[in-house]
Design a protein around this nucleic acid. Structure first.
Lengths: 188, 188
DNA sequence: CGGCGAAATGTGAGTGACTAACATTATGAT
DNA sequence: ATCATAATGTTAGTCACTCACATTTCGCCG
């Protein structure tokens, strides 16, 4: 069992699928690019593609989200309503995070932003993060209904910010996130 | 051109597809129910199904949303931040609306809430409403980025409320919407 | 160094959503 | 009764995705 070498090969094949796949999709569009085509471009079979990615969507939607975003919520003052606690918590968690490698993420997000079917899928892919936020909020005593409403609202704003960033509307990923959170946190 | 009579037949076939389709899906689950099965149950061909519904999703997702929800936003005071304007506007538009026929909507929403692939599709199906809200907000002078962030956040909370209602967690549709808006509007 | 075993990949057949071109039936107005 | 048109059917195809089974690759151990 040669874990190291085979892991290396696995990783290489996987990366080839991603590189060739994103290339093709950027050139032709997501819907116009077939899995067979991507697999062929990576020198591999359709079947192998599906051994690495359960669906065609997942090639693009390596979710840029992270349940880690929820970790800052517990530290927020309890007097704040859940929406503010979530927003502030995410802001502080984000600031504590090292800048992620943006070029790859940006390719993916730009594709997702331009492909209607993927915009919906993106929403679904935030499921883990949403659950983590909800768990933090309910742990603080927020009723589940309110926790879910607040978590989904904050994440929706974040996704919107991501799309704006991928479109070049905002300079940096950080700026997009901060601004999206500003909108959510704004007080009358 | 017998518009009236043929429209009647069209409407009947369509309704048969909806009734039989929702029946089957409720019993077997969305993924386990094939279009061919639904069509057969409605005494019709697969091809005919697709002449009435572009996709299988659309049988369930006759969107319960309505761009009409955006109409109340213009009346909100300009000093409010966009998130509050959107939430208050939707609240007043909703109150002005006659109670929709809930049983049918509830069937659909319950199915959507239980089917992961449909949860994502539901998000996409709010597109029209979101655009209407964004238009209202930008018309009031809100920058597009902020308008989109606020609109998506409010709608996300609304969808969450809808799901809770379909799950029986909240008594009435109206209560679910009001409460979701409460969470979004809450001030620190 | 030669073969063993597991990981990686391939093959072939099948299902189900969806599309397009073309043929057929049904229906209501004249 | 007839005729245009709406409604439906037929057939054949593409593409995402699955399953069962066969084959290759490759490091490791005797």
């Amino acid at each position: 069992m040669t874990t190291l070498a085979s892991d290396t090969k696995r990783a290489r094949t996987r990366q080839r699928l991603i590189d060739r796949g994103l290339d093709l999709i950027e050139r032709q569009g997501y819907d116009a690019t077939s899995v067979a085509q991507i697999a062929a471009a990576a020198g591999v079979t359709q079947m192998t593609f599906f051994r690495y990615f359960a669906t065609k969507e997942q090639l693009v939607l390596e979710d840029p989200y992270d349940p880690f975003l929820a970790t800052g919520i517990g530290e927020q003052p309890r007097e704040l309503p859940p929406l503010q606690r979530a927003a502030r918590g995410i802001r502080s968690a984000w600031r504590a995070l090292p800048e992620p490698e943006q070029p790859e993420i940006r390719r993916r997000v730009r594709i997702a932003a331009r492909t209607p079917s993927l915009r919906g899928a993106m929403w679904r892919s935030t499921g883990n993060t949403e659950a983590a936020i909800v768990a933090q909020l309910t742990g603080d005593g927020t009723p589940p209904f309110d926790a879910r409403a607040a978590a989904s609202a904050v994440l929706a704003a974040l996704v919107t910010g991501l799309f704006a960033w991928a479109d070049g509307e905002v300079e940096t990923l950080g700026a997009a996130i901060e601004r999206a959170l500003d909108v959510v946190e704004a007080r009358p």
